[in-house]
């Protein structure tokens, strides 16, 4: 059995994101990309101090990817004559985010980044299925599932903290089911922002299975 222990959602302008990252990490993320900054901020919002040393996996998805950094790299490579030195691009790669934020999350033990292939929707069902499989086979572990996007004019982060240990005040119990009669919740990036109210309002809600999968996920009051 697993629980949604916490949720977090945030939205920033570029200036606000830089300031929030500075406040949280000092100069530690000075060269990191916006997605890494978002990962840290949403993790600190979702994980109370006492949970930051517990074995944690970070599974995150993104629609935007490192869009600004990719565009800058391509522009610089197109205009340069010598050997490209893409240090800034390297420093902002999704694969680096976990190592970059690990000093503030000492329990971070695994991470995976998932670029999404279409806009306007998310893939929480698969991300959460990964999280349930992870927590089921690793006692005492927790998984921070996040959706991170850094667009030109704004950046946003949404996260669910999943754990077998419910803590003091879990928001929902989460379980895979073959089919659910509960009202459906949309699989959109903002799901963590709307989930607590949907669970509290009635008997719970369900996230439909993507086509081809034989699971749905139910969120019910703990």
């Amino acid at each position: 059995m697993s629980f949604v222990v916490a949720t977090a959602s945030m939205r920033y302008t570029p200036a606000e994101l830089a300031a929030a990252a500075r406040n949280a990490a000092g100069s530690g993320l000075r060269r990191a990309g916006d997605l890494t900054r978002l990962a840290l901020l949403v993790a600190l919002a979702a994980l109370p101090e006492a949970r930051r040393r517990q074995p944690t996996a970070l599974f995150w998805q993104t629609t935007s990817g490192p869009r600004r950094e990719t565009a800058h790299l391509l522009a610089s490579m197109g205009s340069g004559d010598g050997e490209p030195l893409p240090y800034d691009f390297l420093a902002t790669q999704p694969a680096l985010a976990a190592v970059q934020i690990q000093p503030w999350l000492p329990g971070l033990a695994a991470a995976s980044a998932t670029p999404l292939d279409r806009t306007g929707e998310a893939c929480w069902a698969l991300l959460l299925a990964d999280a349930l499989a992870w927590t089921a086979t690793r006692p005492g572990s927790q998984v921070l599932c996040a959706h991170l996007d850094a667009w030109g004019e704004h950046a946003e982060a949404h996260a669910l903290l999943i754990a077998a240990d419910p803590g003091e005040a879990p928001l929902a119990r989460i379980a895979p089911v073959a089919a659910s009669t509960l009202p459906l919740i949309a699989d959109i990036p903002e799901l963590p922002a709307i989930l607590p109210a949907q669970v509290a309002a009635g008997n719970g809600c369900a996230l439909a299975a993507p086509a081809g999968l034989t699971l749905a996920l139910e969120f019910v009051r703990p």
Partner: peptide, 15 residues
Amino acid sequence: PAPLNLPLASGAFIG
């Protein structure tokens, strides 16, 4: 060729 319009979804290549 420039100007490049990156796809909005960073994983669009999977499609």
